[in-house]
Write a protein that binds this DNA or RNA. Structure first.
Length: 420
RNA sequence: UUGACGAUGAAUCCAAUG
């Protein structure tokens, strides 16, 4: 059973779920009865691939075979709920564990903390930390890193910095993730000096920067448009034995594109293949966005086809970039056609996609007509957001129809959308 | 040394003076 599971785990980690499943079924035929670990391993594999149906079926199967879910199995459920943003249910599951005397350890609590942090609910996150301490569970480096990321994403860098000091005085060693989180926080705030200070600190504490740490810094310079510095950092990371990965390249691609150097980006993609780094959907989409922004729509469309040929399925963002490209070219009909095409590919347009259409129709001076798109959005199950309204308000303002603009502001407020 | 948690990359609107 253990041997099988080691194999199973390997297959799951490699995303070879079909093989894993085959192995699982094979075990049954050999008369090896799967234990809770086998089931959990496979369930986790399905969860990570987003195949929740299969995961749930497996859960039912294990229960029906009298295999009791344990702390790990429950935790996976908790994590799934947290990632879906269903925090009440997630909390309930943890309580359920307690009631069933499956003593939840630090991990399910970390999941809850992470869930709340990702929603920006820092008070609730801290409440969970208090609760875990109350239950006699010590926060670990992950707990702190999760909280740290939460504060960073809220832009509360003073609190973030304090938290790192706190964990050190609590006797916990910040690791590469902790530091990378903090470095990212400062980078996103544009505080490079601070970011560099903490890179120095991590090194002096014997924590080696890894690819993620460098990617964070590289991305900062790419966003700033300082491609020289970005490329220099890449050279530095290579000299340290860190291989640039698809994320490194994506940042560079975006940097070049935003500098208007789409040609360089195209060359870089070839360089990726050469280095054996396979571009993924994001990498391709980044280049695609560059092409669209330059109005090179023929190239853009053929790039989308290339993606599909490579088995990389364009997502909403990918398609939306092309939709926006057509919109900005004034080819609204083509944009609409593409929206139908994406639907037929099983990709639903979202608010952003619609906002693009709204924007281009406003630019034509037909704000009234653009406004009517809201109905279409609603019937597609989408709610207009602050950008939708900003676009329309701006449209009316430019047409000199201030009354209508003001009406719209009132309308958005009445819908509970805060003007920014 | 069989399973669960944390960090990095891509899309839409608007803004003063000129």
């Amino acid at each position: 059973t253990v041997t099988c599971n080691i194999l199973l785990n390997g297959l799951c980690k490699k995303r070879a779920l079909k093989k894993a499943e085959a192995l699982f079924r094979g075990m049954g035929k050999l008369g090896i009865s799967p234990d809770v670990i086998i089931y959990s391993t496979l369930m986790d594999g399905f969860c990570k691939k987003g195949e929740m149906e299969k995961a749930q079926n497996l859960l039912r199967e294990m229960i029906s075979k009298g295999v009791e879910p344990d702390v790990v199995t429950y935790s996976m459920l908790v994590d799934w709920l947290c990632k879906k943003g269903e925090m009440e249910k997630a909390e309930k599951s943890v309580r359920e564990m307690v009631l069933k005397r499956l003593k939840p350890n630090v991990i399910p609590y970390n999941m809850l903390v992470n869930g709340f942090c990702k929603q920006g609910e820092m008070e609730k996150a801290e409440r969970i930390v208090r609760e875990m301490v109350f239950r006699g569970i010590k926060p670990n480096v992950v707990t702190y890193s999760v909280l740290l990321d939460g504060f960073c994403k809220q832009g509360e860098m003073e609190r973030a910095e304090k938290l790192v000091r706190e964990m050190i005085s609590d006797g916990l060693e910040p690791d590469v993730v902790t530091y990378s989180t903090l470095v990212n926080g400062f980078c996103k705030k544009g505080e490079m000096e601070k970011a560099e200070k903490f890179v120095k600190e991590m090194v002096s504490r014997g924590v080696k920067p890894n690819v993620v740490t460098y990617n964070t810094l590289v991305d900062f310079f790419c966003k700033k448009g300082d491609m020289e510095k970005a490329e220099k950092l890449v050279t530095e990371m290579v000299s340290l034995g860190l291989e640039p990965d698809v994320v490194t390249y994506s940042s560079l691609l975006d940097g070049f594109c935003k500098q208007g150097e789409v040609g360089k980006a195209e060359i870089l993609v070839n360089g990726m293949f050469f280095k054996g780094v396979e571009p993924d959907v994001v990498a391709f989409s980044t280049l695609l966005n560059g092409l669209c922004k330059q109005g090179k729509m023929e190239k853009a469309e053929s790039l989308v086809n290339e993606m599909i040929c490579r088995g990389l399925m364009p997502n909403v963002k990918t398609y939306s970039m092309v939709v926006d490209g057509f919109c900005k070219q004034g080819e609204i009909e083509k944009a609409k056609k593409l929206m139908n095409e994406m639907i037929s590919m099983g990709v639903k347009p979202n608010v952003v996609t619609y906002n693009m259409l709204v924007s281009s129709i406003c630019k034509e001076g037909a704000t009234e007509k653009a406004y009517k798109l809201i109905h279409e959005m609603v019937s597609a199950g989408l709610e207009p957001d602050v950008v939708t309204y900003n676009t329309l308000v701006s449209g009316f303002c430019k047409q000199g129809e201030m009354g209508k603009a003001e009406d719209l502001v009132r309308e958005m407020v009445s819908k509970g959308i805060k003007p920014n």
